[in-house]
Design a protein around this nucleic acid. Structure first.
Length: 538
RNA sequence: GGGCUCGUGGCUCAGCUAGGUAGAGCAGCAGGCUCUUAACCUGUCGGUCAGGGGUUCGAAUCCCCUCGAGCCCGCCA
């Protein structure tokens, strides 16, 4: 608001995002330069990949869609940084991993033993999540790119231009580099660590010394996988190799003197081409838990978020928020609110609700949020998420959920699409209840009468209520009123009556709104339970 | 030391690109035939738009300054 909007160019706000969706603004900007684009994203799988990283891919994919919508030609690529060395033994690793520190992630054993490597262990679930989110990039793995010699020319140029690289790094990032520093690290053939220091270079051979095992030797650059460019050079090298024209990256790369600043100069001065159009995104935080960092082990993995959030809702969260704004992801009640908000947008898009203030670009955001836009021409059978939280706890399985919803008249015949969507939500709600839901919304319907003391007052209430409920239509509102009527007959405050009912069904004193709740439980169940309770008090 | 974002009712935010004295959702409160309860509906309370100055007939919106909050970089990626 009162923040200064400097006149100097600001890569955080390349253009105004106000009259159009941000993805469209970026797409138009890109199309002014060129009709064909390569959009790159990349992530280092050194630990569980968190939702913060998800933002990078989804942000880029939104721009991709906007480009394609405008008739542009676009390619979405994803590079897994599988050739990066393991930095340290992260908290989620066993001490055994000490021996692998310094080795490329692709050559370290999988922590669970079920994947090809350490890198795959963390990358695979993330790629599966992308699939669920409807993101389909062309995937490249860095260790393959290096191994196949794709980096050969880029490495050669970096070594030939070592003086330039060194000058840029020390000028722009004010790093203190020795005159012998060279932008290449050799993978020591003897110990496998990516730490070999270059002592001499005469193309195509590189002499190195390994600080770890003290080995000295020579490698041939024409062979693949003999070493790696440091990040600050690797990045511009990729832009050059793939012809990248757009890249979204976190603000960690965008600070003054950071890799974006050095990368721009290196790509121009060493690789002779222009840098991509940048888009800086802010991080996603877990509400109340601070920033999410894969390396600290405190992060919640992207796949965990997806386990509790319908994919279109996760996309929705990112699509409705400008990339430059940070997001607090609330895994508690906030998640329920978010799903409700999504549903509201859906109703607006399908004309069931009027667009109001506080809703922006409903249509565009809704379509960008669809994992499979073509399938979503029909509205989904909306059952409020909060309601599902209750239903899921009453029902034992999907069929029962469906039955209860039918009995309540909340759903009719479902198309395959509707049923799929609803079932997906039920799955997500179940996971949420298991792992994130606040205790206050949890309950468990007891299979038999809980072990409680039934007083005379309770018994009388149960008997009368059973009689009254037995001879009336099974209707939520009617049940609610009957409870009050019977309680009044007995001269009992309504609150006490409800407490008794929750006690015999749940074994606790509170629960979901009684009328609807009992209705969902079914007449047979309720009458049996009342009878059992009355008997216990006899 | 440097960079970015944010500061609008209890909470989360929209509105700011093209100035005309504020708008949603949630929460709260009150109702829904004597009914506090976590899914429903209706109504309603609530904000000197962080503060100061400037431009203007008029500023949450534009300009300048101050304060506050968060994050990032200055190891590696």
């Amino acid at each position: 608001m009162h923040r200064a909007r400097r006149a100097t160019k600001n890569i955080y706000r390349g253009a105004s995002f106000h009259s159009m969706h941000w993805a469209d603004v970026v797409a138009e900007q890109l199309l002014q330069h060129n009709q064909a684009h390569v959009l790159a994203t990349a992530i280092t799988p050194s630990g569980p990949i968190h939702v913060g990283n998800m933002r990078e891919v989804l942000t880029t994919e939104a721009v991709y869609r906007a480009l394609v919508d405008r008739g542009g030609h676009a390619e979405l690529i994803y590079i897994g940084d599988t050739f990066d060395p393991l930095r340290k033994v992260y908290p989620f690793l066993s001490d055994d991993y000490q021996q692998y520190v310094g080795m490329p992630l692709s050559e370290i054993p999988c922590p669970c033993g079920r994947h090809e490597s350490y890198a795959h262990h963390f990358l695979s679930p993330f790629l599966e999540s992308l699939e669920e989110l409807g993101v389909h990039p062309t995937v490249y793995l860095a260790h393959e790119l290096y191994g196949e010699g794709r980096y050969h020319q880029a490495i050669r140029r970096a070594l030939d231009g070592a003086d330039t690289v060194r000058a840029i790094l020390s000028e722009v990032s004010s790093r203190d580099l020795s005159s012998s520093w060279v932008p290449f690290t050799v993978r020591c053939p003897s110990c496998g660590k990516l730490q070999g220091e270059v002592v001499d270079y005469r193309y195509p051979s590189v002499r190195y010394r390994c600080p770890s095992c003290r080995e000295e030797g020579e490698v041939d650059l024409r062979q693949g996988g003999v070493g790696k460019l440091p990040w600050r050079v690797d990045w511009p090298a990729r832009w050059s190799m793939f012809g990248v024209t757009f890249e979204a990256f976190g603000k960690d790369h965008a600070a003054a003197g950071s890799s974006w600043d050095t990368g721009q100069r290196i790509v121009r001065e060493v690789y002779g081409r222009e840098p991509p159009t940048p888009l800086v995104y802010e991080f996603i935080h877990l509400k109340g838990k601070g920033a999410m960092h894969g390396s600290t082990g405190t992060a919640v993995a992207a796949e965990d978020m997806l386990a509790i959030t319908p994919p279109e809702v996760l996309r929705f969260l990112l699509m409705k928020t400008e990339p430059s704004r940070h997001i607090d992801f609330d895994t508690g009640f906030g998640l329920l609110d978010l799903v409700d908000e999504y549903d509201r947008y859906e109703r607006i898009v399908f004309g069931l609700e009027e667009e109001q203030a506080g809703v922006k670009e409903a249509e565009r955001i809704y379509w960008l949020s669809q994992p499979h836009p073509r399938a979503a021409h029909v509205m989904s059978a909306q059952v409020p998420y909060r309601h599902l939280v209750t239903i899921v706890q009453i029902a034992r399985d999907w069929d029962q959920v469906k039955e209860i919803l039918r009995r309540n008249g909340e759903i009719g015949e479902l198309s395959a699409y509707e049923e799929g969507k609803l079932r997906e939500r039920v799955d997500k709600v179940s996971h949420w209840l298991d792992r994130f839901a606040p205790e206050s919304v949890k309950f468990e319907v007891q299979d038999s009468l809980p072990d409680i003391e039934v007083s005379g007052e309770m018994r009388a209430f149960f008997v009368s209520l059973a009689a009254a409920l037995g001879e009336q239509p099974w209707d939520a509102e009617a049940i609610h009123q009957t409870i009050h009527a019977v309680a009044q007959e007995q001269g009992m405050p309504a609150g006490r009556a409800f407490r008794y009912l929750y006690l015999i069904v749940l074994g606790q004193t509170k629960g979901p709104r009684a009328g609807y709740f009992i209705h969902s439980l079914g007449r047979e169940f309720m009458l049996e339970r009342l009878a059992a309770a009355a008997k216990a008090g006899a």
